Simulated scan of single mutants.
Amino acid sequence: MSRSRRKQEAPDLGILAGRTLFALQRQLFAELAEQGHPDVRPRHGAVLAYLDEAGSRATDLATLSGRHKQVIGTLVDELVELGYVERRPDPADRRAKLIVPTERGLDHMARSDAVIAAMEAAHAQAVGEPAYAEFKRVFKLVAERLSSGGET
C-alpha cells in the first residue's frame, strides 16, 4: 500500500489536526464575514482568540498563542488599522501597553464565540454528547502535552 493511501485511510495526528483547523477556520471566517467582519483573517486569531475584554499585554498574547512577540506586534498593528483593537497604557505599569478590543473587536469576539459554540453543539449532536466531551478532554490533554514539549 502506498504512503499516500495509508495517510488517507489512517491519517496521523498532524493531518487530523490540520484538517480540523482549516475546516473550522473556513466555516468560522465565512460566517463572520457574513455577520459584518469580512476583513479579519485566520492569522488574527493569535490575538483575538486570546484577548481579554479588559485588555491583554502583547507578551501574554504571544505566550498564550505560541507566537513570537514580533508576530503578535505585526498582527496588533493590522488589527489597530482595521479598527478591532487599540493600544492603551497599562494602569498596572505605565511603561507597558495593553491591547484592548474596541467595540468592533468586542462584537467580533462575541460573534466568534457564538459561531464556535454552535459548531461544537452541532458536532456534539452528530456524534453524541458523551463522545464529543471525551474527544475534547483527550484532545486537550494531547494539545497540552505537545505544548509543554511532552515526549512521544
Rank of each mutant, 00 (worst) to 15 (best):
R87N: 05
A131C: 10
H37L: 03
A124M: 03
L16H: 04
L32R: 08
G73S: 09
A133E: 15
P91N: 00
V100W: 01
Y132A: 08
G55P: 00
I15F: 10
I116F: 01
E81W: 03
E53N: 08
P38I: 13
A117Q: 09
V85N: 01
Q25V: 06
A122C: 00
E34A: 15
R43D: 09
R137H: 07
T59N: 10
F22Y: 15
R57Y: 03
R104F: 02
G14V: 12
R137E: 11
S65H: 00
V115C: 03
G66N: 03
L51D: 02
L82T: 05
L13V: 14
A118K: 13
Y50H: 15
S56H: 00
E103R: 13
P91H: 02
F22R: 15
R111K: 15
L24T: 14
D113W: 11
R137A: 10
H37G: 01
D39G: 10
R111W: 03
D52P: 06
E120L: 13
A133R: 15
S65K: 01
E34D: 15
G73P: 03
V100F: 01
I99D: 03
R88G: 07
G14F: 12
Q35M: 14
H108F: 15
E134Q: 14
A62K: 01
D52A: 14
V40D: 01
R19H: 11
G36W: 00
L21W: 11
K140V: 09
E78P: 07
Q25F: 12
A110V: 08
A126E: 06
Q35T: 05
D90W: 04
